[in-house]
Amino acid sequence: MNKVIGIIKKNKLLFSVILTYIILFIVKPDKGIESIKNSTYYIIEMIEIMPVIFILTSLIEAWVPREVIINNLGENSGIKGGIFSFILGSFSAGPIYAAFPVSKTLLRKGASVFNIVIILSAWAVVKVPMLMNEAKFLGVKFMGIRWILTILSILIMAYLVSLLVKKDTIPANNKNQNNDLSGIKVKQKYCIGCGLCARIAPNNFEMIEGKAKVKNKNIDINDIKEVNEAIEKCPAKAIG
Rank of each mutant, 00 (worst) to 15 (best):
I116W: 09
V117L: 07
L120A: 13
L120H: 03
S121C: 11
S121D: 06
A122I: 04
A122T: 15
A124N: 13
A124M: 15
A124E: 10
A124V: 05
V125W: 08
V126K: 00
K127R: 07
K127T: 05
K127W: 08
K127G: 09
K127P: 04
K127M: 04
P129L: 10
P129H: 11
M130E: 05
M132V: 15
M132A: 13
M132C: 09
N133Q: 12
E134T: 03
E134P: 03
E134N: 12
A135H: 01
A135I: 12
A135G: 15
K136T: 13
F137I: 15
F137R: 08
F137E: 13
V140H: 03
F142G: 06
F142D: 12
F142K: 07
M143I: 07
M143W: 05
M143F: 06
G144L: 14
R146I: 06
R146Y: 08
W147C: 01
W147A: 02
L149Q: 02
L152Y: 00
S153R: 01
I154G: 03
A158W: 02
Y159T: 06
L160F: 06
S162M: 01
L163C: 09
L163V: 02
L164Y: 07
K166V: 11
K166A: 10
K166L: 09
K167F: 10
T169N: 13
I170P: 03
I170N: 06
I170K: 09
P171V: 13
A172Y: 13
N173M: 09
N174H: 05
K175R: 09
K175C: 09
N176K: 01
N176H: 04
N176S: 00
Q177S: 14
Q177A: 05
N179L: 07
D180L: 07
L181F: 00
S182I: 02
G183P: 02
G183H: 03
I184A: 00
